[in-house]
Amino acid sequence: MDIDLITQVLFAAIKTGTPLLFVALGEAICEKTGVLNLGQEGMMLMGAVVGFMVAYGTGNAGLGLVGAMLIGCVMSLIFGVLVLHLGANQVATGLALTIFGTGLSAFIGTSVVGKTLTGFEPIAIPLLSDLPVIGKVLFSHDPLVYLAIALALVIAYVANKTRIGLTIKAVGENPHAANAIGIKVLHVRYLAVMFGGAMAGLGGAYMSLVYTPMWVENMTAGRGWIALALVVFASWRIGNIMLGAYLFGLASIMHLVLQGMGWSISPNLLAMLPYVATIVVMVLISADKYKEKLLAPRSLGKPFDPRQMA
């Protein structure tokens, strides 16, 4: 492998990891407050289709992003009302959100299938992008790649160093204690769920506005699920999520690399790689039962009902 190929592969890995990063960041915050939203795939698809339709209709990719985040929020609110107010099972509701989002996105997207647009152009950061290898790999991307990195840093700061982060942690670890000291548990959880929705919408929009850029039914191909797995691998730590997203980006494009290197393996077999990699990493990480129990937010998946507190 020569240096040019390595540069290209790493560049593509970061690009491929970016939608995973958006979605996993949102879900990590959501899970830190104790809410498991399995609807990521559905919200991503809705973000992808709405983002594309808005950008296509207005000719403005930025408005597409806003639309994608809004629809992600709306979708997550359906989930929020069912899970937080009506105490519905989080797993079943999340699945319903994915099934609904998959169907609805295919339904509303029929009019824009096969259309193309120019999404976001790459912006080379002055000076830094002239560096050898690193310049190409890190500093000559589209603006959303930078946005994802910036968001990861901000979220890491907020989650670990601020009062908001403490509140989130309190709600996720022990909602009853949090409630007792006057934190409005359901408000915090609603905000976290909506934040997760907006981020999933953004991740979806990255697929349809930058990565491909076009709308195809079911185009996220399980990335919402891989992002969910990523949160578990990363042990709910923002720094790990960033690293994990790019590593998964790399795993997802390995098949192109192997083909480029002249391996004659069927592309259909190679296309399994990201999913196989997800399982392998999951087995390696979660084999230590006690470690995972220690790291996961303690109220994850469990409903909190203030009505039963009185």
Binding site: G42, L82, N89, T93, A96, I99, F100, G103, A106
Partner: peptide, 15 residues
């Protein structure tokens, strides 16, 4: 695609 959407809506209403 309306079928898939209805299935999701049905599960929402059920929950």
């Amino acid at each position: 695609a309306v079928v898939g959407m209805f299935q999701g809506v049905l599960l929402f209403f059920l929950l």
